[in-house]
Design a protein around this nucleic acid. Sequence first.
DNA 1: TCTGGGGTCCTAGGACCC
DNA 2: TCTGGGGTCCTAGGACCC
Length: 422
Amino acid sequence: MPSAYALIDCNNFYVSCERLFAPRLAGRPVVVLSNNDGCVIARSEEAKALGVAMGEPYFRCRNLLRRHGVQVFSSNYTLYGDLSRRVMDLLRELEPEVEVYSIDEAFVRLPAAAPAELAEQGRRLRELIRRWVGIPVSVGIAATKTLAKVANRLAKQEPDHGGVFVLASASVDAVLAGVGVGEIWGIGRRRADLLRTHGLRTALDLKRGDDAWLRRRLTVTGLRTAMELRGVSCLTLAEAPAARHSVASSRSFGRLVSDRGELGEALISYLSLAAEKLRRQGLVAASLHVYLTTDRFQATTPQYSGGRTVILARPTGATPELIPPARRCLEALFRPGYGYRKIGVVLAGLSPAGMRQGELFASSGPAAAEALMEACDRVNQRWGRDTIRSGGAGLVRPWRNRREYLSAAATTNWAEIPVVTA
DNA sequence: TCTGGGGTCCTAGGACCC
DNA sequence: TCTGGGGTCCTAGGACCC
């Protein structure tokens, strides 16, 4: 290979994070639930062996989990985010070219070398991350990112690979023949179905697919995937994170909400979250989108969903300036008589706060709003989220979602730091 | 009773302009 | 009688990812 890509992927990441501060969970089945304790989004190997499916609704497997004494956690993104940062920081110390791809994955570019040597490098990264952060990872190495994904899957599947697998070009076809077309990175449910109805069942079939047909039916992204399987690198390493295009915040409610006032509280509350995220990244938004929807799983009740986008008078990240237009969106969208399950907000048209265009007819410039927001953010950072918040976000918040099995913020909050007793 | 949330990219189609 | 062609921008919707 001219140069190789390594994919470092944390094993069952959320579960590994929970186990880090609860060693008694080692070897025991553990699952982590999505927001609202909705469905299973991470499973330990023991939980997988019990037949708990990825994405399975919690209410449907609750009995099975209880019967087998499976330890259940709500998502603790504060904890996962911090441990992710530690893994990625270490990786960047060890390697010059790193792309953080997701909370639990990173691509690394390695100089060309013999497979045995690449495997040795993979083992080294794996061991250092295990020793210094405590999170187990798998490493897949190949000529392209898509093939590195395949290699990583094999590193995880076969215990005798020791968590590291190098997919050398000589063995690519034999390996791809054993990989289902739906398991390839970039091929989701719809495309997998389409490919199978046309007789392409394995990664090898896709690799040998007709370019014009792939381009037409799967767009350029599908063709790129096929090229990558052929060893032609089409996806390069993105070391600097790309500029964001949007910031969103939404939640499902703990119960259905029909009351306009409660919807408004939830909206302001999520809007505040999104605006805070925006300011933390030094951005302002030029447009705002609000959407709401009823419960799509209740086929028997009347369904309604809608969204509304407004262009803001001026780009801003100040919550008080965003609230009135957001309220107007809700007023336009709201239909009485429905049970709503979810409301959300998307801030888009993002640009750096410093580059904002001047205003022709400003009365009280954006400076005042900015200073206010800065002060609020500082207070909330020091004394905890929501110490200062918009009155419109509500105090009781009966619509709040569930997090019944939350673990401690063991690495980011002094009050929740683990205590060691001898 | 109970089914997550936050992103990206691509394409098609319409509006608009010269 | 005659009904171009090319370009840009925007939006909605689909598909995919973790």
